[in-house]
Structures are given as structure tokens and as C-alpha cells.
Design a protein around this nucleic acid. Structure first.
Length: 423
RNA sequence: GGAGAAAUGGCAGAGUGGUCGAAUGCGGCAGUCUUGAAAACUGUUGAGGGUCACACCUCCGGGGGUUCGAAUCCCUCUUUCUCCGCCA
């Protein structure tokens, strides 16, 4: 959520930069400013009425104490009108505040200056590419065929017990999943991230904190009976550790990592590109989350990108990094780098990590602040990234490491898998 | 799931209708003393809104109510603790 104060001070800038998202927000911005004006004016009026009424109440108290009951009752009569007035004003105040907040919830984050123009994923800017694309022979199979061939992932079984998009991993496939999770967590903790295990359901306040709610797209599964949401990513519970917290400057940065399953309804996204592991309702992911001093957050973002690069180098997977264009940028993000691994058999790039700086967008929603050296309270910056999302990494390994003898396990994973080939 | 108790400032802990935003202790910060430190002493120390700055307003787990006036009374939700039941 953007800060009203910021909008007030940088109105033209906000409107201008939002055009990168192909949004024309000048009307909404005007409305925000108008509602804010109204809110503050009403607040002042209400404060005055309350001040008057507080004064009279004290008077009444003192009169009763000194036994002047009759005079006290006289004063009491004067409070009746004030009460009515304060009720009306506070209703008006509430209405303005609610409308303002709801409007602010609809405004996405302001894109960073480096975000390229563009409408869709086709306009994302490739900024880095590395790794050798293996030359596979004509018999090379896509991962869903390999999964079947070696009996390591069973999509039909998952569909039977739950539904489409909920695969069952079997035997060496399950073990490889576990190996990847352990390997990623080790890489992250070695880099200074603290490991957490977190609830997989969150309450509404947490969903709002990260910008996952209000959930217009119906992305999250909602457990109605208990009013809880299945997490779409560990970002939601982990970042909300810090909701309503006032940290001291020395507490920054906070580096967290957590493995969780992720649940996504993915309503409306069906088609050729969602075969196999390409898009699932439930998948595993190891996430990294950082809470940073605003002055350091972009340096931290670069650090996260380097960290993910290192992992992909170790896995020896061909990958590239994109800087997302304005049209493809997620709601809460100011700048996002996507990592894509090349799927040799499918001959397309698969997104395996998304690393973002949210600046104060989430922090403002969740009141995540720190006290700086001068003792002033500032919103912190939040960042997160996948390190990494499992299914497409798995797809990449299966496809890129396939040989006539079987699927060779990348060297760094062998200590975790305990085997070096799936055959 | 049933019965009961509780939730107050960074922490501990008073406060059961009226100058209570809240005693006291610890902690934090500043100072005195000291070569330095400790101890002792003195002062200071919650958050949000608002203002050029004051004033002023709001906040005692969340929400609602009673009252001229609520940390204090009532309703409700959440969480914690104790006992019983169930259970990986």
C-alpha cells in the first residue's frame, strides 16, 4: 500500500510512473487526496467536539465530588448535543477512512526506475544468460514422459485422490524432492538466512499484509469454516512475522528462509503450457525473505540475485535472468527479477524463481517499522525470492540430465539423494 | 469438546466508574561521581493522529455496548494458563 503522505508529496511522479504498468491512475490519486483531506478535516472537527465533551465530563466529576449535584445535572444537559455530534462525525470519519483504505488497496506499487516499459512477458528484458544447453537427441522426452517412464511422478494418482495439479512423487522422485529441499535450505542457511518452519495456513490479516488479500483473482484457497487461507508461498507467513513490529536499526537486516508447500488455485489458467510440472495447485518451494534498511534494499536485491545464480551454477542448469517489464510486474513489487531455466525437451523457458523488492509497500500495509539512529520511525523494506521453486527445477533436471541410461543426478545433489542416476 | 482463571507500557506488576496514559520495580537513555568501569545518586524513557511549534484527540488483547465520564461494568471474539475428555 502506498503511503498517503508520499502520494501527497509526489503526486505527478506516482501518476507518471504508473503508466509503466499501463495504468492511468490520476483519477484514483485525486480521489485519494480528496478522501485524505476529508478524513483529516473530519478528524479535527471530531477532536474538538471530544475535547469539549471531555472538559464537561471533568467538570461534572468535580461538581459531584464537592456535593453540587444540582449544578452537575445542569452541566450534564449540555453534553447531550455533543454526544450526538461526535457520533455523526465519527461515522463520517469511519466512512472516509474505510473508503480511503479500500482505494489504496487497489493501487499497486510504483515501479522502480529501471523497470522497462512493456505490456506482457514478451517485453521482459533479458539481462543475463548462463549455462550450456545440452544437445539432446531426437528421442529426448519432456519431463512428464520421463516421470512416467521411470515411475517417479504420478499425475493420475494425484488426480484420483485430490484433483488435477496435485502430483504424487514416488520412489526416487520423492527422494529427489527431499534432496532438493535439503540442498536449498543448506545453501540458504550457509548464506546467512535463518531457517524457519511455519504454518501453512494464515489468517486474513497476514494475507492483507503481504498484498495477497484482498484476493480478487481467487488465487488462494480459503478454508471457510475457520476463515483461514492456505499459503500461496512462504512469503506470506514469514514476512508477517514482522507485522506490527517496531524493530531497532540493529535488528536489520532480517534474513529468513523457509521450506513450505504452496497452494494456488490458478483459476482460469489451463492449456498446453500447464502440462506436467509446469503449473500445479500444490508445489514445494524454499523461499528467502529479507527485511532491510531502505538504504540497503537494492544492494540486498542484487545479493539475492547472486545467491540464486550460484545455486543454478552448482546445479549446472542453463538459465537466464529477466527484468520484468511494467506490465508483467506483480502488484506489490517495485522491481522483480525472474529466473528461468531452459527446458530442453519442451524448448521453452520455465520460471523457477522470482526475486523482488517491495520497498515499503508491504511494510506500510503491515506497519513494519524500525527506529533509526535519530530515533525516528521509518518503514522498513521487504524483499523475497524463491531459492528455489521445486517443480520446474525438477523438470529442468529431468529434461536436461536425461541420457539413454537414465537421468543423471547433478553432482551437488548426490550427497542428498544417495544415488546418482534414476533408471 | 467441557469447566474455570486471565490478557495493562521493552519486561515484571499495581490499579474495579471521575484530573489514570496509567503507581512501583527492572531494563533503556542522559548526567553527577570515577583515571576508566561498576555501584550509588539525579533526570529522562509507550504508540498513533494533529500542529510551523504548542494545544488537542485516540489507544490498557480485538470488536461492540452502558454512562455526562470506562483500564475499571455488560456482550462478543481471539489468545494464554489450570483441570477433565480426546488424540499424533
Amino acid at each position: 500500500m502506498l503511503q498517503v503522505q508520499y502520494i501527497r508529496d509526489h503526486k505527478e511522479e506516482v501518476i507518471g510512473k504508473m503508466t509503466k504498468r499501463n495504468l492511468e491512475v490520476s483519477e484514483q490519486i485525486e480521489k485519494v487526496l480528496q478522501l485524505d483531506e476529508e478524513r483529516r478535516a473530519t478528524q479535527t472537527q471530531l477532536d474538538n467536539v471530544l475535547a469539549e465533551s471531555n472538559k464537561l465530563s471533568k467538570e461534572i466529576g468535580m461538581l459531584f465530588k464537592s456535593g453540587k449535584a444540582q449544578e452537575a445535572n445542569e452541566v450534564k444537559k449540555k453534553t447531550a448535543g455533543l454526544k450526538e455530534e461526535s457520533k455523526e462525525l465519527s461515522e463520517k470519519l469511519n466512512a472516509a477512512s474505510t473508503e480511503l483504505t479500500e482505494l489504496l488497496y487497489t493501487l499497486p506499487n510504483v515501479p522502480h526506475d529501471s523497470v522497462p516499459e512493456g505490456d506482457s512477458d514478451e517485453d521482459n528484458e533479458v539481462i543475463f544468460e548462463e549455462g550450456e544447453v545440452p544437445v539432446l537427441d531426437k528421442k529426448a522426452l519432456p519431463h512428464w514422459e520421463l516421470a512416467k517412464k521411470y515411475d517417479i511422478i504420478d499425475f493420475d494418482l494425484g488426480a484420483k485422490i485430490t484433483g488435477a495439479g496435485f502430483p504424487v512423487y514416488k520412489g526416487k522422485g520423492a527422494r529427489l524432492q527431499r534432496a532438493l529441499i535439503a540442498y536449498f535450505l543448506d545453501k540458504n542457511t550457509d548464506a546467512g538466512y535463518r531457517e524457519y518452519q511455519v504454518p501453512h495456513l494464515v489468517n486474513e490479516a497476514s494475507g492483507i499484509g503481504t498484498g495477497s488479500l484482498p484476493d480478487k483473482e481467487g488465487q488462494m484457497y480459503h478454508v471457510g469454516l475457520d476463515d483461514l487461507y492456505l499459503i500461496p508461498t512462504a512469503e506470506v507467513p514469514v514476512t508477517n512475522f514482522f507485522r506490527d513490529e517496531l524493530l531497532s536499526e540493529g535488528d536489520l537486516p532480517q534474513l529468513c528462509t523457509a521450506y513450505t508447500p504452496c497452494f494456488r488455485r490458478e483459476a482460469g489458467s489451463y492449456g498446453a503450457h500447464v502440462r506436467g510440472l509446469n503449473r500445479l495447485h500444490q508445489f514445494d518451494k524454499v523461499e528467502i525473505v529479507r527485511v532491510e534498511h531502505p538504504e540497503n534494499s537494492y544492494k540486498a536485491l542484487e545479493g539475492m540475485v547472486e545467491h540464486v545464480k550460484n545455486i543454478l551454477r552448482e546445479l549446472k542448469l542453463p538459465y537466464r535472468i529477466l527484468r520484468l517489464c511494467g506490465g508483467d510486474l506483480t502488484f506489490a513489487s517495485a522491481l522483480t527479477y525472474d529466473f528461468e531455466v531452459y527446458s530442453t525437451a519442451q524448448e521453452r523457458w520455465l520460471e523457477i524463481s522470482s526475486v523482488s523488492n517491495f520497498e515499503t509497500f508491504q511494510a506500510n500495509r503491515m506497519k513494519l517499522r524500525f527506529k533509526d539512529k535519530e530515533g525516528k520511525k521509518q518503514l522498513a523494506h521487504t524483499l523475497n525470492g524463491s531459492a528455489l521453486a521445486l517443480p520446474r527445477v525438477l523438470a529442468g533436471i529431468l529434461e536436461n540430465y536425461q541420457t539413454p541410461e537414465g537421468i543423471v543426478i547433478p553432482e551437488v545433489l548426490r550427497p542428498y539423494t544417495g544415488f546418482d542416476i534414476i533408471d
